[in-house]
């Protein structure tokens, strides 16, 4: 279906495209290993976050927490805020986003364009700190509605009802699903769907590994694990640093023509790792991974220009995913 009554109706239903040049392809033993990209940048505001944002708002409207004239508050370093702001604008809510001060300028501008008000949280500590600040503000404004993507089940539900079924319909032979680990909503929701619909699909998490500034002041006793996270729904989890993420995001553009954001490079790196394992084991595999967003919002990070060494240096201390 390509005609919709409004922009909000057009969320989801994204294309799944093959990567003929990055996939290992047909092996001498007859096994075939293919990699598929789920283009979530084709959503209305250009990221996968349109799915959970819309679902969280709809659920809150349904259960009565969100009423006309309400103010929405959310800790976000960008995409979720942009998605929420779009939906809030169309539905008539005010929105305040708490974001770390070391996120890219494009994301701030986009948030402001869609009408969000921004509260900055300290760079050190990254999203953990944004969550802490948002919780504090929520305490001071009991009438504001914090949808709280890290603990809101509607986040995972959007993927359980949308992303998962779409993948199975487009790729019935799917063997692996690889996505980024942030709120964990994508992985939790898609996994819940496949655990039921096709339990042998392996669920693989790619987690960004930042520079030392981001972890520097973290106390090991005050870490953060999203409330949504259920370890039993994941089969393996990889930590991917900025160097591999940049290298892969450039390969994706160079070889397949897909211009993606840096976190997608980290996810592709984990997907290629699974592909290499399948080749080594002589098994066929159909590996689907998520293209979270396009590269536009990250041009100012310097990730796409110069050598990989230079890009790695520039990303140090930034929340690149």
């Amino acid at each position: 279906m390509t005609r919709f009554d409004s922009l909000l109706e057009s969320v989801g239903g994204t294309p799944l495209v093959g990567l003929p040049r990055l996939s290992p392809g047909l092996q001498p033993n007859g096994a075939e290993v293919r990699i598929w990209a789920k283009l979530e940048d084709r959503n209305p505001t250009g990221s996968i976050k349109d799915r959970p944002a819309l679902k969280m708002i709809e659920q809150a409207e349904k259960d009565g927490t969100l009423r006309p004239g309400c103010t929405i508050l959310e800790p976000t370093s960008g995409n979720t805020g942009i998605s929420l702001a779009m939906a809030a604008k169309l539905k008539g809510y005010r929105i305040v986003c708490v974001m770390p001060e070391n996120t890219s300028e494009e994301r701030r501008q986009l948030l402001r364009m869609w009408g969000a008000e921004i509260v900055s949280s300290p760079a050190a500590g990254g999203s953990n700190e944004a969550v802490r600040v948002a919780k504090k503000i929520a305490g001071e404004h009991p009438d504001w509605v914090m949808l709280y993507q890290y603990g809101n089940d509607a986040n995972a539900l959007a993927h359980e009802e949308g992303t998962g079924p779409e993948l199975l319909e487009d790729l019935p032979s799917i063997t692996h699903f690889v996505a980024g680990l942030g709120t964990t909503g994508t992985l939790m929701g898609v996994s819940r769907f496949f655990r039921r619909a096709k339990p042998d699909v392996r669920i693989v998490a790619a987690e960004p590994r930042y520079g030392e500034l981001v972890y520097g002041l973290r106390n090991l006793d005050e870490g953060f694990v999203p409330e949504l996270y259920d370890e039993s729904l994941i089969d393996s989890r990889f930590s991917v640093g900025p160097r591999d993420a940049v290298r892969r995001v450039r390969e994706l553009l160079e070889l397949e023509g897909i211009f993606a954001g840096i976190s997608t490079g980290a996810i592709l790196h984990a997907a290629l790792g699974q592909a290499a394992k399948a080749v080594k084991a002589g098994e066929s595999a159909d590996i689907a991974f998520v293209v979270c967003d396009g590269g536009w919002k990250y041009l100012s990070t310097g990730a796409y220009e110069g050598t990989v060494d230079e890009a790695e240096d520039r990303l140090d201390g930034q929340l690149w995913a």
Partner: peptide, 12 residues
């Protein structure tokens, strides 16, 4: 072997 404190995700 890499040891890291758990942090929340990035672009969320």
């Amino acid at each position: 072997v890499v040891v890291l404190p758990a942090v929340a995700g990035g672009a969320r």
